[in-house]
Amino acid sequence: MAVPKHQRLLNLIIGLSSTRHRLTRDQIRDTIEGYEPLPHGASEEEVRKAEQSFERMFERDKKELRELGVPVETVEDPVHGDEIGYRIRPAEAAMPALDLTAAELAVLGVATDYWRGAVLGSDATQAVAKLASSAEHGPRVELPFAALPAVGNDAVAALVEAVADRQTVRFEYSSSSSGAGTRTIEPWRVVLRAGVAYVIGFDRDREAARTFRVQRIGGAVTPVGEPGAYDIPDEIPLGALAESGDVATARVAVRPESGHALRRRGTAAGADGGWDLYDVEYAHADALVAEVLALAGGARIVSPAGLAKAVTKAATAALEVERG
């Protein structure tokens, strides 16, 4: 009976981990239980077919192990010319001992829900299965916590792989400033903010670091060229995504029984006629302007003048919006 695939993959991990130097493809085919050695006395045609079927099987196995997180290294040996060998360094392949508690394992179950319906969902489930190995066994822990899936875009999974492999990618992108077009970037890092995914990388055409909102990527993310093609800088510029160290203060006037959120964040600064005054810190002027606008007359900006002007500009423009 043929050796089942899970058995063959386990034997392949064991074989490539225990080799002193490396195993060549021929050695793998002939000695690892689960692959078919070349038949003795076979015809040339039979040998060719057997080689092809081994190649297909081994390539697929290698890919699946790498996707699983097992670093299958390619080892070239000048003595043997262009015959390629493979090995796994056990220390690099092993899961570090994390010693999780039953409650910690339960939280990981909640975290997998966050990616439900997206490609990363099966990655999260697989990760929890791996972490269960070093978790304590306890009664099922029910947590009053949940995470609903984020707006999914499967480009995230491809970008994470590209970052790990340091491989250039190409995709269609609808930019807010320059319209739709093809972008070629060297991705450096995936960033999540408030449930939205971004990728920061070096834009080959613009020759500068750029931030891309993953949701605006249309279609597939295609790898271009070889892995390991570039270095990722130690300091990645977060640009507009940064927490923003620069905080300014605005004085905002709010009507009684209005602007509750502003009141909670701000510091009371007296009153002016029928209005209560508050000093409110802000990192992004646009966000504060939007907040005041959304109160529809329940608040106004006293200072700075630039923000007050932005409020009137937006409201004036709104009066001129056409009916569609």
């Binding site: 991990i13 996707e67 997180g69 899961m95 990363l120 999260a124 697989q126 791996k130 970052v163 790990a164």
Partner: peptide, 11 residues
């Protein structure tokens, strides 16, 4: 075996 890059990012 250790977590793959995708698994690590997901969790």
């Amino acid at each position: 075996v250790r977590l793959s890059p995708r698994e690590a990012v997901a969790l």
